[in-house]
């Protein structure tokens, strides 16, 4: 089942604008309960899609629509409307800063223990380093308001885990690009991948990719465990920097150009590692927890 989903996801995400195909296939609300208007399925299913979106750098608010807004509305008992959604936490009128895809989606706002679905009265467009919309929004009135049991801290964890999943997809892409390039690019009469110095860079990169990936997969299975999510995002954000740096080192100067596709991946790595908390922010959260470090690690606190 998940292999078929993964194959489908990669087919769709490789298109220039995957959103219509995602909607047609009912894949924008995977992981959101059917009774709330979602497509059902597990968070692991949703992660398969999100990882593929990260791999392709797909320009879609997939994390925002299902993983974040859809689940938030479901938790509040509100029906999930069709179309792209995003989420924000803040004062109910706004202004809300750097809302992902704010110009292109209806916004589910979490404020003072309740959620509302809002259309912005005023949008100031902005972007992250990768050019993905991160807009400032101001609102007039709420369309639907309901009390919501999800706290701002929980919503931040949801966001961190979503970005961590996207990071693992992008890191795998960066590794594949670097390995392929090392096999093609010739210097001194042979592919640069024949040089041990380059091989060791790629091996180091592969280590970061595999460890980040398995940790994020584990956290997706225990999304309510604060230690798991904090560790997964901290590690993915840390790995993203290493992976991007090695990817560029292997590619040489061509990798930093607009014409070469590597930047589609590395600009996202550098953006997503910051969003919903970087490795330092999540390390600080872990460090502030009371208890013996071993009990925290093994979930036996």
């Amino acid at each position: 089942m998940s292999e078929l989903l993964e194959e489908t996801a990669h087919q769709i995400m490789a298109a220039p604008d995957p959103w219509p195909a995602l909607e047609d296939a009912g894949l924008t609300l995977v992981g959101v309960p059917e009774e709330a208007g979602g497509s059902g399925g597990t968070l692991e299913d949703a992660a398969v899609l999100l990882r593929a979106a990260g791999y392709h750098g797909a320009p879609v608010p997939l994390a925002e629509t299902g993983w974040l807004a859809g689940r938030l509305l479901a938790a509040a008992g509100l029906p999930v409307p069709s179309g792209p959604l995003t989420v924000a936490h803040g004062p109910s009128g706004g202004p809300l800063r750097r809302v992902p895809w704010g110009r292109a989606a209806r916004c589910v706002v979490l404020a003072d223990g309740s959620v509302a679905i809002l259309d912005p009265a005023q949008v100031t467009e902005g972007a992250n380093l990768a050019g993905e919309p991160r807009d400032d929004l101001v609102f007039d009135a709420a369309e639907a308001v309901a009390p919501c049991p999800v706290t701002p801290a929980e919503l931040r964890r949801w966001g961190a885990l979503a970005r961590a999943v996207q990071l693992t997809g992008a890191m795998r892409r960066a590794l594949e690009l670097a390995v392929a390039y090392a096999g093609e690019r010739e210097q001194f009469g042979r592919p640069i991948g024949r040089f041990q110095a380059v091989q060791h860079l790629l091996a180091e990169m592969a280590g970061e990719v595999v460890v980040a990936d398995v940790a994020v997969r584990a956290a997706v299975r225990t999304p309510d465990d604060p230690v798991a999510v904090a560790s997964a995002k901290a590690n993915a954000s840390r790995a993203a920097g290493e992976v991007a740096a090695i990817a560029h080192q292997v590619h040489g100067a061509i990798g930093v150009t607009a014409e070469h596709p590597l930047h589609r991946t590395t600009l996202r790595l550098w953006s997503w590692r910051e969003e919903y908390g970087d490795e330092h922010a999540w390390a600080a959260e872990l460090g502030a927890l009371d208890g013996d470090p071993w009990e925290l690690l093994t979930g036996t606190r």
Binding site: V210, A212, A215, A218, A234, N235, G287, L297
Partner: peptide, 16 residues
């Protein structure tokens, strides 16, 4: 914070 950073890394390595 440093302890937290080590824990995050170790958590991930332990999962691997």
């Amino acid at each position: 914070n440093a302890v937290g950073g080590l824990l995050a890394r170790l958590w991930a390595l332990r999962q691997a």
